[in-house]
């Protein structure tokens, strides 16, 4: 069986592209290509990563301009075909702005950029992105964002919860949902959600920053591994 091909999408201002590329190639051992934002054809790839950064400088709303990029047409097309799309941090914001994921991401309640490790609880492991985790498992992952407070109006929030679309929640180290464990004020402690179909995943924490022991946590690695394994099973 061949290698799984990941596309790492690069917008002007993306800055976690090299990190995602490194994890896929060097840690996971699969194939990766950088795809410049002007490209439209993503059909050669099995998985698409929208990495973090400050696409187009984020001078407007985060992600609001990236969603107009030609590459987002390709992302939309591949997502419809059922390929796996993951948006990390700014990538999550872009997916939300593009309407590929529901809800909105607002400025952190403390109005500060925050770069630190947080704890996350796995809420649903029945997805292509989380099947290598246990349900209820507590992970340690870093966040690095200014606009990561997840918001959705009550009806949407209810349907997200009902469909088990919330995959990760901020928690304390014991997995308890305590107010002080919520770094940005997200509703329902939401750190990551998946679309209804289950193939588009967005999360604020950075799994690529904790995929090796030397970086003090490996808890993010199984997200990439889950994607690759799941894709291999389909091929």
């Amino acid at each position: 069986m061949g290698k799984v091909k990941f596309a790492v999408v690069v917008f002007p201002g993306t800055n976690c592209d090299m990190d995602c590329y490194y994890v896929v190639k060097e840690v996971l051992g699969e194939e990766a290509d950088y795809v410049w934002h002007r490209e439209e054809d993503l059909s050669p790839y099995h998985c698409i990563i929208l990495p973090g950064g400050f696409s187009y400088g984020d001078y407007l709303r985060t992600g609001a301009i990236a969603k107009l990029s030609p590459v987002m047409e390709g992302v939309r097309r591949e997502a419809e075909k059922g390929k796996l799309v993951i948006g990390i941090c700014n990538g999550f914001q872009i997916l939300v702005e593009a309407g590929l994921l529901p809800g909105a991401l607002l400025k952190n309640t403390n109005l500060r950029f925050l770069c630190k490790f947080v704890h996350l609880r796995v809420e649903n492991n029945q997805t292509p992105f989380t099947h290598l985790y246990k349900e209820g498992e507590v992970l340690r992952m870093p966040i690095a964002h200014y606009e990561g407070r997840y918001f959705a109006p009550p009806p949407l929030l209810q349907s997200l919860e009902k469909n088990k679309q919330v995959l990760l929640r901020y928690s304390d180290p014991e997995g308890k949902l305590k107010e002080e464990a919520n770094p940005n004020g997200s509703l329902n402690f939401i750190a990551g959600i998946v679309n209804e179909k289950g193939n588009v995943f967005g999360l604020m924490p950075h799994p690529e920053r904790c995929s090796e022991e030397v970086l003090s946590s490996e808890d993010g690695f199984r997200i990439f591994k889950s994607m690759a394994d799941w894709m291999k099973a389909q091929l």
Binding site: N15, C16, M18, D19, Y22, V23, G52, R112, F113, L114, C115, K116, P142, A144, H206, E208, R209, E212, L215
Partner: peptide, 10 residues
């Protein structure tokens, strides 16, 4: 230092 990204580039 929490307000600066100190991790990017891995």
């Amino acid at each position: 230092y929490e307000q600066y990204d100190h991790m990017v580039l891995l």
